[in-house]
Simulated scan of single mutants.
Amino acid sequence: MSSEVMDAFWRAPPMARTLASAILITSMGIYFGPLPSTWFYFTEDRLFRLPPEIWRLASNFLLSGPKLSIVMDPYFVFQYLGELETTNPRFPTKEAALWYLMTVGGFIIILNRAFLGGGFFLQALLLALCYTSVQDQRGMKANFFFFQVPAQTVPYCMILVGMLSSQSPAAVPTQLSGIVAAHLYDFLTRLWPEFGGGPNLLPAPGFLSRLVTTPRVFQREYGTAIRGGGGQTSGSSTGASAGSVLPDSWKTRGSGHRLG
């Protein structure tokens, strides 16, 4: 049973499973374990210390809400980010989805620190992922818990459910900042090029392609494989070369003679 669960985990979209797992582990560690929340929240002054605490640019998205949100927030992140990775035509490559996370996350931090305050912004990122995921589903129906609603209204249904469950509207501005950040990304990368005739103002940088590309040399249990230009691999620990079943050391012994 455990092997089946692990197989399903490793078959899941890599960024979705990694981010959802990080949120679940961090949230449980903060709410029930030894992790202090002061290690994770975002504040500008920590970026200018020596050494700079640059991990806070990402760690502020790793704390879910309390109670049932500890499970539901990672689940929704996994669902919507997985859809962007695997089925959304706007993100045909891993680097495109990664660049989306980086830029939208940056917009969320700027909007909140400039106008709203706060130090944890997962709720905003979750709404951004949901908003982007349903943009190509306008006019279709989507399942939201036990109800069917127009797909484009799912982000606002999530805000309403959050208000009803927590009995507090305090998180609504932060959630709305995620929708604004996702819409800003959509405008700069799709609406402006398609309808304004301009270029894509947020193209993915080239270094991301090199970052997510599979390395040419990788280790296997039975040796080292080197990926060639044509995508084929050759074993270096078997002692055999292509086209022959004899080890290389035998080929240096001459042509050989038959006994008798």
Rank of each mutant, 00 (worst) to 15 (best):
I159M: 14
F32A: 11
P52M: 07
N88E: 15
T233L: 13
A16I: 07
L246V: 00
L111S: 09
R227I: 15
S165H: 06
G197I: 02
L188M: 13
S3H: 06
A204T: 15
G206P: 00
F61N: 06
P173E: 01
R17W: 07
R210D: 05
T86D: 15
A170Y: 09
F48I: 15
G230N: 08
L19N: 00
A170W: 09
P51C: 01
V5I: 14
V134G: 00
L116F: 13
T43R: 12
G178K: 03
T87H: 08
F48R: 12
G196H: 11
Y185T: 10
Y131M: 10
C130K: 05
F146Y: 10
T43H: 12
R220I: 09
V77M: 00
Y222N: 14
R190K: 11
G230P: 01
K67T: 14
A225F: 13
V217P: 04
W192M: 07
W99Y: 11
W39K: 08
L127I: 11
L116N: 09
V217Y: 01
P51V: 12
P52C: 07
E221N: 09
A142L: 12
F76M: 13
E194L: 14
T224K: 07
H183L: 09
A240P: 00
S209G: 11
L24N: 05
L57N: 01
A16M: 03
M163G: 04
P150K: 04
R46V: 15
Y100P: 04
V5D: 05
V212R: 02
W192C: 04
T93Y: 10
G29I: 14
R210G: 14
S59N: 06
G239H: 00
V180H: 03
T174K: 03
L57G: 10
R210E: 02
A151G: 05
L160H: 02
G231C: 00
P13E: 00
Q167T: 12
M140Y: 06
A114Y: 05
V149I: 15
G118F: 00
G239Q: 03
F207P: 03
F76S: 13
S177P: 12
F207S: 05
L111R: 01
D45Y: 12
S234H: 10
L101S: 06
V5K: 03
P173W: 04
G229P: 04
L126M: 10
I109G: 04
F78V: 09
Q79F: 15
V245S: 11
L176R: 08
G82S: 11
N60R: 14
A142Y: 12
M15D: 02
F42V: 11
G206H: 09
P74E: 06
P51N: 03
Y156F: 14
Q167P: 02
I70W: 05
L101C: 14
G196D: 08
Y80D: 14
N88H: 11
Y80I: 09
M6P: 01
W55E: 08
W55C: 02
L111G: 13
A242L: 07
T93A: 08
P66Y: 07
F187W: 08
G106R: 08
F121I: 06
S64H: 06
E85Q: 13
F61K: 03
R253F: 01
Q152H: 08
A8M: 02
F42T: 05
Q167I: 12
P215C: 01
